[in-house]
Design a protein around this nucleic acid. Structure first.
Lengths: 133, 133
DNA sequence: GCGTGATTACTCGGATACAAGATGTCCGAGTTTGAGCGG
DNA sequence: CCGCTCAAACTCGGACATCTTGTATCCGAGTAATCACGC
């Protein structure tokens, strides 16, 4: 029960793209170097974000990845769901007749976490970082 | 990023012990049958709960597992922490100078989930089940 | 100067390798209960 | 009837075996920009 490193890479990559004022595509090599990951692995992660519709990839020379949505629409939850999947964190596969009460409690707890992640946007962090400098 | 099956087994086992009015030790075989798990595997899980101090094991004939604390003191979070560990779900190992803002957001979200799990006690479910019958 | 082709700098996707953790099994050792047996 | 011994019913703990998942690499294919070259 841990968030994967891939999620960490995805969040940091998205944040750096949000901070970057120029909307030009950024090569995966540049992004990978900043986080000390192999470019090929990072590209695998980023294709998930592309499929989720929050990035687009520009192929060819001077290609790379670029944001599609407006910066203030991207929440933590979007990114996490794109990488980790949207399935519930806890699933009881038992057959104790009706609904599993334990499952209900777990889902409630999970929902509270997701609410916080849905309310927090990447642009909020960008603003905070600027203020700090 | 999923809760392990072991957590599910642990929660169900604890719940059935809380419901059971007699405070006699219950053999692992009985507990395992109810959940369709192998007894040896379940005992591995339960020893974690013993080490966490919420169960005690009685060895020998007619032995088994028994609650140590009062029933209304056992929260979901206690059990989950005993099985999954208490480490943070998200850890950024990067060196971007100061504290990682992303990490902060993730920890805040996690804290909200934990708060709900800490407030919910097994005895609450037991009461709900009785009412439902 | 201008088109055309080759080169270069990229991403994409699949196949594969590797490591770690979750899941589960097996077995020997220790512990208590209870039954059986001898005095 | 009492006490001793022994078997049975348990848990405990470590050592394995297996399976899934996360992490990561490699390579061939496709694509767009740029450079080189010939006209």
């Amino acid at each position: 029960m841990k968030f994967s490193k891939a999620t960490n890479y995805a969040l940091h990559t998205m944040l750096s793209l949000v901070i970057d004022p120029s909307m030009k595509p950024v090569g995966v090599q540049v992004l990978a170097e900043a986080q000390d990951v192999s470019p090929t692995y990072l590209s695998k992660i980023l294709t998930k974000l592309v499929k989720a519709g929050m990035l687009e990839s520009v192929s060819g020379a001077n290609g790379g990845y670029r944001l599609t949505r407006k910066k203030d629409e991207i929440t933590f939850l979007d990114i996490i769901h794109a990488i980790e999947g949207t399935a519930s964190l806890f699933e009881c596969h038992f057959d104790h007749g009706e609904e599993c009460l334990i499952q209900q409690v777990m889902v409630e707890a999970e929902t509270k976490m997701e609410l916080h992640l849905k309310q927090t946007k990447l642009i909020d962090l960008a603003a905070k970082m600027k203020a700090h400098v």
